[in-house]
Design a binder for these strands. Sequence first.
DNA 1: TGATACATTGTTGTATACGATCCCGCAGGT
DNA 2: ACCTGCGGGATCGTATACAACAATGTATCA
Lengths: 237, 237
Amino acid sequence: MTGASDDSGPRTADPPASSAHVAEKLALAIHEHRILPGTKLSEDEVGEVFGVSRTVVRAALQHLSHDQLITLRRNRGAFVAQPSIPEAREVFEARALLEPRTARSAAERTAPADLTRLQAHIDAEHAALAAGEVGRAVYLSGQFHIEIARIASQDTIREFITQLVARSSLIIALYWQRRSALCESHAHSALMRALAAHDGTLAEEVMQGHLLDLVSSLDLQNRAAAPRSLHEVFGGR
Amino acid sequence: MTGASDDSGPRTADPPASSAHVAEKLALAIHEHRILPGTKLSEDEVGEVFGVSRTVVRAALQHLSHDQLITLRRNRGAFVAQPSIPEAREVFEARALLEPRTARSAAERTAPADLTRLQAHIDAEHAALAAGEVGRAVYLSGQFHIEIARIASQDTIREFITQLVARSSLIIALYWQRRSALCESHAHSALMRALAAHDGTLAEEVMQGHLLDLVSSLDLQNRAAAPRSLHEVFGGR
DNA sequence: TGATACATTGTTGTATACGATCCCGCAGGT
DNA sequence: ACCTGCGGGATCGTATACAACAATGTATCA
């Protein structure tokens, strides 16, 4: 109410404006590095942006907090999470446990329609890179991994991988080192070929190597990167 | 509100009654089979029991919903989840991916204090079984698995295992077949011995076998168990 | 001049109020 | 007798109001 229909700006107020919707939008923005780690997400502010009350914002923030995308500090507010270096290692260790075996399962049941979608992901990722939208490329790259879990028909594991991929996006935002074009695309293509050939063993190996490459592209030795301050993040905002 | 101190019955109104506290209490009750799958958790009712408002209850329910311990249905309410047979399989497949390797890691860094705690868990489990408290035994059995992830110093994976163990408890409530005393205790002891010997390979194997045993003790073929109704669950309430 | 204590302000935590949606039971028609 | 449309009751979804806490800025004192 209160004339939420027009409001000032963004899309807002499509139909129901459920909390899940707000959470999704925020998650996407974080995933695409449109909101950087450490940023404060004030309830009032978010509510105003999306044209909803603090109640629904609060629910959305709690949801994101549970995915460890944001950190909720009592009486202080919500902040985009800043995974520490140990946490970053753990995330990729968890991925190393889950994804290779899942890729194997996926290879054994890949259908033609799946390959079409995977190719679409890769194409979109290339397009985003060509357009200079690095954040979006990171997001799409993550979606590729999630898609593989979907092919494996493992919803539970897919849920976990979804969380890990989202956190990986934060980790990339914090510890990305090698800004050379995402060579991952190559790995993704190789993975897709392994799936097309129904070669589970190969898919598992490729995925394992891909994840190792990803970790090695991060700077997880330098301990100075962790206590990154807000001012540092924002540059000179 | 106000005057929630005495109320009618249960513990209620300890001190602050934060939403996390309510969620934890509910989770424990579900975990111990004090609340059975399919049970409706009305916001008003839960709020009254714990002496808090619907706001905090809602937050707690959302938290549990995210862990898939309860199912939230729009305008219908919250119900304790009833994992389907495919979901049950997925849960144990995920555990099979995570836990054996985690047990291996744990074995390589088990400290004396860890063994003490593990033994305490096993003892408590035996005591619960001796007292006929099957639900509590199931809970403690799950905590044992979580403790292993803690020893492995893998907080992220531990979080996942915590979720999976909780869901496993629901699955056991629904599909438990072999009511013979939980032979798991034996497996847990074997696991502890492997950890004490720092034998990672053995620990991994024992854990894998233990999980397979667990699955085989369930009835995941019978499809009639799924659509269990509320009245059936409650008997004649 | 520097440090501490206090008042102020802003933000979150919780409770309550109102509106929307859905389920259940009943009247009426075919 | 069965099916269909409608109304009552209850529950959830969202918004708002008040209270508590933390952070900040200012004034006073050593």
